[in-house]
Simulated assay, not measured.
Amino acid sequence: MSSLNFTEANLCGANLSETNLKDAKLLRANLSNANLSKANLLDANLEEANLTDVNLEYAVYNNATVFPKSLDAAKSSAYLIGSDVLLQNANLANADLSSVKLIAANLSGANLQGADLTCADLTAANLSQANLKSAKIHRTQFSGANMSGINLVGVNLNSTNLSGATLTDAKLCGVQFCSANLSGANFSSADLRGADLSCANLEKANLKDAQLGGVILSDTNLSGAIMPDGSTHE
C-alpha cells in the first residue's frame, strides 16, 4: 500500500497496523482513533491530518515525514529512523527498513527479528545484543559496526560487507557468509558452528576462541587471521 493518496480521506478508527504507508499522501486525512501501530510512515505526508487519539506505537518515520503541527513526533511512541538516532531496545520486528541510513545509530538490544534491511546502511552502528534472527539482509552495509553478542541465526549474509565489525560472542550458527567481506572483523568467542564461509574474505580477522565446528572454509581467505588457538594463519 505504498505511495497511496489518502488526501482528505476519512480513516477514523481504521486499523492500519503494520501497513506500509511509505511515501503516502495523508494530507488533511481524518485518522482520529486510528491504529497506526508498527506502520511504515517513512517519507509520508500527514500535513494537517487529524491524529486525535491515534495509536503510533512502534510506527517508523524519518525526518522527511510531515506530521501536523499539533503532533510532537518526538514525544510519541513511534521510532525516528535515521543516522545517529537512539533506538536502544526498540521493537522493530518485521519492520521494512530497506534502503534506510542508520549510520552510527544506537540499536543496542533492539529487536530486528524478521526486519527487512535490504540495502540499508548500518556503518558504525551499535547493534550489540540486537536480535536479527531471520532478518532480510542483502547488500546491507555493516562495516565497522558493533555487533557483539548479536543473534544472527538463520540469516543470509552472503556478499555482505562486515569489514572491521565487532562480532564477539555473537550467535552465528549456520549463517551464510559466502563471498562476504569479513576482513579485520572480530569474531572472538563467537559461535560459528555450521556457518558457510566459502569464498569469504577473513584477512586479518580475529577468530580467537571462536567455535568453528562444521564450518565450511572452501576457498576462504584467512591470510593473517588469528585462529581459535591464538595462532596466526599464514
Rank of each mutant, 00 (worst) to 15 (best):
K171L: 11
V155K: 05
N62D: 15
A44C: 09
N146E: 10
G154L: 04
S143I: 07
F142S: 00
L152R: 06
T140E: 09
L80P: 09
D84P: 07
G114Y: 11
N62A: 14
S99T: 15
A74F: 13
L41T: 06
L42S: 04
N89R: 13
G114A: 07
N161L: 00
L152I: 01
Q129T: 13
C178G: 04
A39D: 04
Y79P: 03
L51D: 01
L122P: 02
A39N: 06
L46S: 04
S179Y: 13
L182W: 00
A180C: 08
Q129Y: 14
S98I: 09
L97T: 04
D96Q: 14
L122Y: 03
L86N: 15
T168K: 13
N89D: 15
V85P: 09
A49P: 01
I81F: 02
A125Y: 06
K171H: 11
S76Q: 08
A115G: 13
L56A: 01
Q176W: 13
D96M: 13
G174F: 03
Q129W: 10
N63W: 11
N181M: 10
N89S: 12
A73H: 03
G144K: 00
D72Y: 06
L97P: 05
L56V: 00
S179G: 10
G82L: 01
S108H: 12
Y79V: 01
N50T: 02
I150N: 09
A110H: 01
V153S: 05
L172E: 02
K75G: 11
N181A: 13
L152K: 11
V60T: 14
G174D: 01
N161R: 01
A115L: 05
A39V: 04
L51S: 01
A125C: 13
L107F: 07
L127P: 00
H138I: 15
A74I: 12
E57N: 14
Q113R: 15
A64K: 14
V54D: 01
Q113S: 15
Y79A: 03
Q88H: 10
N106T: 09
K136I: 09
S159E: 15
L182V: 07
G144A: 08
A90E: 06
L162P: 08
V100D: 12
L172W: 04
N55K: 00
L41N: 00
L117Q: 09
N181G: 05
A124H: 15
I150Q: 06
N126Y: 06
I137T: 04
T160Y: 02
S128I: 09
A124K: 10
S159H: 15
T168C: 11
A59C: 12
A49W: 01
T140Y: 12
T168E: 12
V66M: 12
V54W: 00
